[in-house]
Structures are given as structure tokens and as C-alpha cells.
Write a protein that binds this DNA or RNA. Structure first.
Length: 822
RNA sequence: GCCGGGAUGGCGGAACUGGUAGACGCACCGGACUCAAAAUCCGGCGAGCUAAUCACUCGUGAGGGUUCGAUUCCCUCUCCCGGCACCA
């Protein structure tokens, strides 16, 4: 073993060549199955999960940042002795595959699997420590069959149910559109005017869990405050009831309200101009026709909405109040949006400011049904009373508070959930597909053609990683070992929907006995976006042209401050419009592949972790990448020079060190203490890396060829290599061997701080006079306040400011600072 | 409009619990090496004042407050970013 080590040492490359050493390290991990993990009850587990990507074709910088953060945590926790699972998979159902199929005639499946293969190679080239034996692709039957299986269990339990609901219908594409796919009332792809349609579809009763989902947020310290707030607002906002009012002369009018407690205060109803009821009433009423036309003309631009006054007209139709039986006039109003909810609202002017203003304008009745809980009387003669309070003038419901009233009305109307899962389906026309056998009785049956939304796939994939390749069950006992996820990492854009659905899904699975955990993700880290400069030219006519920052040179003034930019190709100026998210439309993306090819994966990883803390946005900088690469070269050279310095270093003799050796050793262990805290607790990888750079700068000046000097250097470099191993694993894999170790750095433990090395003989105390820095004194480490005071008052810099003045106060912060107040 | 976050050198950022503001990196400037350039190494680098790298003054978006001491806590304001938005 010793001779083998010598051989490696003698052949150590002087040059840092990532293109050679990175594939070697990756081959080592692959060959040894370093990242394939098995359940091991004897060791503490750690489940580190990154949001899986849609296989769009290539990784983008956002992915690289996301997965680098996850990989650093994974490798760090592994060095801390945990049994760490880091899986990866593919959120593989989506419209891009269909669009690509229509555009290029490539079958969606082939397109998807080709993309997966390519992106998997990219992930491997970045050195992520992933257990690929657990890979999941949601487009494969062995994954989505469990969606269907769980859905049937949900039907049995009544968590899923079928009900008629209003949807956005695209008449050209013959499909249902999500709200975000409707742009200015038109289908995003077909451009056709979207219709509201009542179709039967499946609902998932997430509202049944709303209280629990909301309440549990208070007990989730591992989640960022702002994500919890966003979920709180979202759940609170969408918690309401659907109530149907009968319409005189036939039909019903469905509305949705978050204030069912004010139900008895309804004095009119309002519908959108496009609402069928309004359309019908307008047929033989020219005034109404004109008003409706006006409403529609006003459009939905923001400016119009801001300035538009609230206007309306009675339809001459009445609805019947479901409790009181009263006749309620139905109005058409320009502030009711057809695109939101049912396109109709119940109006409670006493307790809604908008309804109040409308009622005042048109002389409609205002009927108070809520008063403050403290018993005082709210005045509603000038504005609506908006707070939750106690019900009055509501017959049998008088005296109830908001929650009690909500529950009482909910029971009365058997409130239903509001998470539609349906989408349109061309499968309904395919007889071969439709005809099937009932799996229970064997008789001919009609196959269900409604499909589930893709959010279902991502709501439980983390369970499947933990139960990978089980043909017989959705999840198995292995999930009990791994769940919950200890650290989840992904983009803030999923702060609400994906994370909320996952929490909902976990509760459903718990109710079905599939898991014991209540919350799927113990700790959540939302990484910031990756930004870059945006450059463009706006021709006199035609469209703006964006130029990639890589093709642009920045012009500097003589102080180095940027004053302009020119396109390298023609030397002519381009305009800069600040920085923004890397995107195709702004042509400011940087391809991870070319970055890895030019500088190596370690440089890419180092730059990403160093340029900003993980939660903040990260500004791209080619010069910053160069800087990271320079550091890699310096690190490599430092180890190379040390190893070249002679045969293996003598054992460290702590008692025999010179003051300079003790100093450098103290700095080594101070750095180790800091990076342990920064990586392990604070997750501020940027400051950890900065601390190591600082240490390397000090080590470069520490030129001590003595036996103990080399021993100190050996220890320092080992700590540096171990400490950087999570961030730049390829280089550290090689350097660890160069430092004389037969084992692989991936199997090493995180080093221990030698607290004895941290002890100082003397400390420097900063001395202020009236809070201004005036001097510094050096005292023995254990000096008491009196000693420090004596030294401080004798300092020449201090004396200048206190001479002849009485000392009013002396403040001493142990070991750091003294303040003399005169 | 509502909710949340932020503003620190030419730039990205650091300062962890109220205690030396500007760590680390980039850019820039000077020097060494070189015929020269690149690379590398060494040094400088908030502003003002100054012959000066001494000293001093100012300085963390603006104004005020609390404190021996404020980038950090409190109040008011400006701007920027994110989320939601006639949301029923």
C-alpha cells in the first residue's frame, strides 16, 4: 500500500486537469456503487430530496443550482455518519412532449425517453451522488398505475367524488383549460374564445383537510416563514362554500363564498355579463343588451379595472334564498368576473365593502347579520363591517361565531371540495379504448376516460423512491424507514401548489394506512433563481433583438465601472436592460454543458455555491466562474507543492509547535469550526467557501519546511480537502489520495475540531471612546476587566481622547471590545 | 390595493446574539517575471481631507428615536423584488 501511494505521488499531475480527473472520480463512485443505499436500522437515516425535473431536453442552470445544493448537503451528511438517500427521477408527463410531437412528428414517448437519457448523462457529469437504482419516471405504467390504484381507494373513501362543475372549455381543442391557460378569455394554444361549461368531473376533497393543513403549518419550524405564510393565505382564501340558489321560473344559480356566515344578509345577487342568466334576460331587453355589450367592451386591462366604477342593472329575475325563502333580485354587474368561480356572487352589502358601495349606489337594501364579538354595535351607516363576529338577525343561527356558522351552513349544504382534477379527453371517441371488462364482475363496462392532472404525479414520488421497484405495492415498509424527507430543496415557484398537494396526498395516504408520517418534508430550502444580464437592440422597425451576454463586451471607464456594452461581432453598442431570470425569450441563458466542458463540474459547483447564499437569487458572472477556476488551480497547486516537498510528513507533535505553527493551526481549526457551522447548520455555503479561501491565503504564506511545519501543513490540507469534498468532490477525490490516503474521501468522516488548538495566549481588545474606535490593546487571554481597563486607559490613542475628562462609564465585552465613556 | 422580502464600495456579497463595517471573490490600478503578451505571483483598492501608506471627518436607501455603542432594535418615508388581486 505504501509503495502504491508513493507511485501515485510521484506521478501527480502538476496541472489541474478536471477533464481527466472528473471522469475518473465518477467512474470510481459508479464502480463502487458509492451512492446506492440500503435501509439500515442501525444507522441514522437522512433523506435528501431535490424536486425532480421535467425532462425538457437539457438541464438549465436552475437545475444545476438546485441539485448542487442537494448534493453538498447529501455528501456532508454522509460524512457526518448518516445513511443518506439522494434519489432522482422525472416528472415526465407534460404538454411540451405533446407540442414537440405535433411540431416535429416525434412520438411523445420517444421524445421523453431520449431527453431523460441525455439529462441523466448531464447529471452524472456534474458528479451528483444519486442512487440511480431508485429512479422513477412518472410516464411509466409502473408508476402511474399507482396513481390509479390510489384514486380508486380515494373513491371508496369518498375523498374523490364525481360532481358537476364549471370549467373553461376550449371549443377548438375540445379540451378543458386550467385558469392559467386562459389568456384574455381565449385558449392559450387555439386562441379560441373560451366557454364556461358544466361538465361532470372528479373532485378531490382537499377542503376536508384544510383545517389540518393550515394548523400544522404552525408546527413546521423547518420551513421558511414566507412559504408557510403563502400557504396560510392560500388555504384561508380558498376555504369557502358553494351554495345553490333556486331561480324563480326554473334553474339554479350557484355561487361560491368565503363568508357563508353572512348568508342571511344577502339582499341581492350579481352575475357577470357573460353569465347565461344575464344573456337570457337580455334577449328581449335592449337596455340590458347595451349594458352587457358595454361591460364586455371595457375589457380586462389593468388600467380599465382600476378606474372602472361599479355599475350594474337588474335582470328582472329573482332567486329564492335557500334559508329564508325570500325573493332576492338578480343583477348583472361589471365587477363580477366570468373567469373566476361560477361567474356569480351573493351580495352582502352590510359585510362587504364592494357590495356596500354597489348597494348604496342603486338603493339596494343593507341588512346587518354580524356584530362584533365583544358585544358592541358596529356602525354600518358609513361602511361595511368586515370582521368576523357573532351572528344576529339570522334566526336559528343567531349567536354563532364564524367557525360555528361555517360548519352549520356547510352541513346544511353538504359543501364540496374545490380542486378539480379533470381535463378534456379525446379518448372518449375511441371505442376500442372505451370498451372493457369490469374488473369486479367481468361484465362489459365503459372505461373511465377522465385523466388526472399531472400534479398527482409529483404529489407522492418521494414515497416511491423509498419503495422503488415494488411491483406489488405502491409503498412498502422501506418508506417507513426513509420518510419523512429530511431536507427538500426546490424552487420557490412551487411554494403553494406542489407543496400543498404533497401535504394533502400524504394525509390521504396516512388515512389509507400507507404511511405513518403526517408531513412529508421536515425541512424545506427554496433556492433562488439564476439571473443574468439582458442585452438588446430595438431596431427602428421590427421586434426587439436580444443578445446573449456571452457575445457582448462591456465597456469600462478608467475606474473599471461599466459605461456601456457592444456586440463583439460588429463592435456596435447594445442596450442593457438590467438583470433578469435566465430565459429563452431574453436569450440570456448559459448552458451548463459548455460550462462543464470548459472548466469542469467542480468549478461550476464551486461558483454556484460561492456567488450567493442558496435562498437568494444568483447573478451569473463569467469572471466569477474564472475566479472559481483559479481557486481550484491554487488548491491543486498547494497540495502538489506540499507533496513534492518530500516523503510523508512526520506525526504532528502538538506540544512541540512554534508560535507561528500554533497560529496557523489555530486558524485551521477556527476555519473548520466555521465551515461545520455554515454548511451543517446555517446552510450558507458561500461563507464556508470564503473561509476556506481565507485559510488557503494564509497557508500560502506559511512556508515552513521543518518536520513539524510539514506536519501542520499536512493536517491543514487534509482538513481543507475533507471540508471542500461536498462542494468539489472530484478534485478532493484525487487530492485525498495525493495526501497519502489509500481510502476514498467519499468514505471519510467529517473532521473534528481540536478545541485545544483554538486556545490563544493573548487576545486583542478593541478600545472605543464614546463608541468610536481609538485604539487596540493586547492582553493575556484570561485577563479580567480591571486588567483590560488599566491597559485600555494607558493606550496612547485612547489617552488623547480621555485626558482631562472624567470617566463616566467603562463597558467591557469579554475578549472583544472595551468602551470608555467620558 | 393587500401580504411578504429587500436596499451595504465600481460589482456579487460578508458582518452568526446590539460590539473593530466592507471578510471572500470579481473588476480595476501598480509591481515582479517576459523581447512582448497571456498565465502566474506580490502589493493597492469606500468617500473626503492631506505632501503622506500618519491623523482626522464622513459613510450600510432618506429622516428621526432607543443605547455607552445601531448595517442589526423601534417609528416615518422613498425605491426595488416576489406573491395575490374587482378572488366573491
Amino acid at each position: 500500500m505504501q509503495s502504491a501511494t508513493r507511485l501515485i505521488r510521484s506521478t501527480m499531475q502538476e496541472r489541474y486537469e478536471p477533464s481527466v480527473l472528473e471522469p475518473q472520480a465518477q467512474a470510481f463512485w459508479d464502480g463502487n456503487g458509492s451512492f446506492a443505499v440500503a435501509e439500515d436500522p442501525s444507522r441514522p437515516k437522512y433523506y435528501c430530496l431535490c424536486m425532480f425535473p421535467y425532462p425538457s431536453g437539457r438541464l438549465h442552470m436552475g437545475h444545476v443550482r438546485n441539485y448542487t445544493i442537494g448534493d453538498v448537503i447529501t455528501r456532508y451528511m454522509r460524512m457526518q455518519g448518516y445513511n443518506v438517500l439522494q434519489p432522482m427521477g422525472w416528472d415526465a408527463f407534460g404538454l411540451p412532449a405533446e407540442n414537440a410531437a405535433m411540431a416535429n412528428g416525434v412520438p411523445p414517448a420517444k421524445w421523453t425517453y431520449d431527453n431523460i437519457a441525455y439529462m441523466k448523462r448531464q447529471l452524472k457529469s456534474l458528479g451528483f451522488g444519486i442512487d440511480w437504482s431508485r429512479e422513477v419516471a412518472t410516464c411509466k405504467p409502473d408508476y402511474y398505475r399507482w396513481n390509479q390504484w390510489l384514486f380508486l381507494r380515494m373513491l371508496e373513501k369518498g375523498i374523490a367524488y364525481r360532481k358537476t362543475g364549471t370549467v373553461n372549455w376550449d371549443p377548438v381543442d375540445q379540451t378543458v383549460l386550467a385558469n392559467e391557460q386562459v389568456i384574455d378569455g381565449r385558449g392559450w394554444r387555439s386562441g379560441a374564445l373560451v366557454e364556461k361549461r358544466e361538465i361532470p368531473m372528479y373532485y378531490l376533497g382537499i377542503t376536508k383537510y384544510a383545517d389540518d393543513l393550515l394548523g400544522a403549518l404552525d408546527d413546521m419550524p423547518g420551513w421558511p416563514e414566507r412559504v408557510r405564510l403563502m400557504q396560510e393565505n392560500w388555504i384561508g382564501r380558498s376555504e369557502g362554500l358553494e351554495i345553490e340558489f333556486d331561480v324563480e321560473g326554473g334553474g339554479t344559480l350557484g355561487i361560491y363564498t368565503t363568508r357563508p356566515d353572512t348568508l342571511l344578509g344577502v339582499t341581492y345577487m350579481a352575475v357577470a355579463a357573460e353569465h347565461p342568466l344575464a344573456q337570457r334576460a337580455a334577449q328581449d331587453n335592449p337596455d340590458l343588451q347595451q349594458f352587457i355589450a358595454e361591460c364586455q367592451r371595457n375589457g380586462v386591462t389593468e388600467a380599465a379595472l382600476e378606474t372602472m366604477e361599479k355599475r350594474g342593472m337588474p335582470l328582472g329575475i329573482h332567486a329564492i334564498h335557500p334559508i329564508s325563502g325570500e325573493r332576492i333580485p338578480v343583477w348583472v354587474a361589471n365587477f363580477v368576473l366570468m373567469g373566476y368561480g361560477t361567474g356569480a356572487v351573493m351580495a352582502v352589502p352590510a359585510h362587504d365593502q364592494r357590495d356596500y358601495e354597489f348597494a348604496r349606489r342603486y338603493g339596494l337594501r343593507i341588512h346587518q347579520v354580524v356584530r362584533p364579538a365583544d358585544g358592541s354595535l358596529a356602525r354600518i351607516d358609513e361602511e361595511a363591517y368586515l370582521e368576523h363576529g357573532t351572528l344576529i338577525n339570522s334566526g336559528q343561527f343567531d349567536g354563532l361565531d364564524f367557525d360555528e356558522a361555517f360548519d352549520a351552513f356547510a352541513k346544511l349544504f353538504e359543501a364540496q371540495g374545490r380542486v378539480p382534477d379533470g381535463s378534456g379527453n379525446p379518448l372518449g371517441k375511441d371505442a376500442k379504448f372505451l370498451e372493457c371488462q369490469c374488473p369486479k364482475c367481468g361484465k362489459p363496462a365503459r372505461r373511465e376516460t377522465d385523466t388526472m392532472d399531472t400534479f398527482v404525479d409529483s404529489s407522492w414520488y418521494y414515497f416511491r423512491y423509498a419503495s422503488a421497484n415494488n411491483d406489488g405495492a405502491m409503498v412498502d415498509e422501506r418508506a417507513r424507514y426513509w420518510m419523512p424527507v429530511d431536507q427538500y430543496i426546490g424552487g420557490i415557484e412551487h411554494a403553494i401548489l406542489h407543496l400543498l398537494y404533497s401535504r394533502f396526498w400524504t394525509r390521504v395516504m396516512r388515512e389509507l394506512g400507507l404511511t405513518q408520517v403526517e408531513e412529508p418534508f421536515a425541512n424545506l430550502l427554496t433556492q433562488g433563481m439564476v439571473l443574468n444580464q439582458i442585452y438588446f437592440r430595438k431596431p427602428a422597425e421590427g421586434r426587439i433583438v436580444y443578445y446573449n451576454p456571452a457575445d457582448v463586451d462591456v465597456v469600462l471607464d478608467d475606474k473599471g465601472a461599466p459605461v456601456g456594452a457592444v456586440l463583439r461581432a460588429d463592435g456596435q453598442p447594445v442596450e442593457a436592460s438590467g438583470i433578469g431570470t435566465m430565459s429563452k425569450s431574453k436569450n440570456n441563458g448559459v448552458d451548463p454543458q459548455s460550462l462543464v466542458e470548459t472548466y469542469g463540474a467542480d468549478t461550476a459547483r464551486l461558483f454556484m455555491m460561492f456567488a450567493a447564499p442558496p435562498e437568494q437569487s444568483l447573478e451569473w458572472s463569467d469572471e466569477g466562474v474564472e475566479g472559481a477556476f483559479r481557486f481550484m488551480k491554487r488548491l491543486w497547486k498547494a497540495v502538489h507543492q506540499h507533496v513534492q516537498g518530500g516523503s510523508s510528513a512526520a506525526a504532528l507533535d502538538r506540544a512541540a509547535l512554534s508560535p507561528a505553527q500554533r497560529d496557523i493551526r489555530r486558524q485551521v481549526h477556527e476555519t473548520l469550526r466555521k465551515i461545520t457551522h455554515d454548511i451543517g447548520t446555517r446552510r450558507t455555503f458561500n461563507t464556508a467557501i470564503a473561509a476556506v479561501m481565507e485559510l488557503m491565503n494564509a497557508l500560502a504564506k506559511f512556508d515552513d519546511r521543518s518536520s513539524q511545519g510539514r506536519a501542520v501543513m499536512q493536517e491543514a490540507l487534509e482538513i481543507v480537502v475533507l471540508g471542500l469534498a461536498p462542494v468539489v468532490p472530484h478534485a478532493c477525490h484525487a487530492l485525498w489520495r495525493e495526501l497519502g490516503h489509500a481510502g476514498a474521501v467519499i468514505d471519510e468522516r467529517w473532521p473534528q475540531v481540536d478545541t485545544a488548538a483554538l486556545v490563544r495566549d493573548a487576545i486583542e481588545v478593541v478600545v472605543q471612546v464614546n463608541g468610536k474606535l481609538r485604539g487596540r490593546v493586547t492582553v493575556a487571554a484570561g485577563a479580567d476587566e480591571a486588567t483590560v481597563r488599566e491597559a485600555a486607559l494607558a493606550d496612547v490613542g485612547v489617552l488623547r481622547y480621555i485626558e482631562g475628562k472624567p470617566i463616566r462609564k467603562f463597558v467591557y465585552v469579554r475578549g472583544k471590545l472595551a468602551n470608555v465613556v467620558v
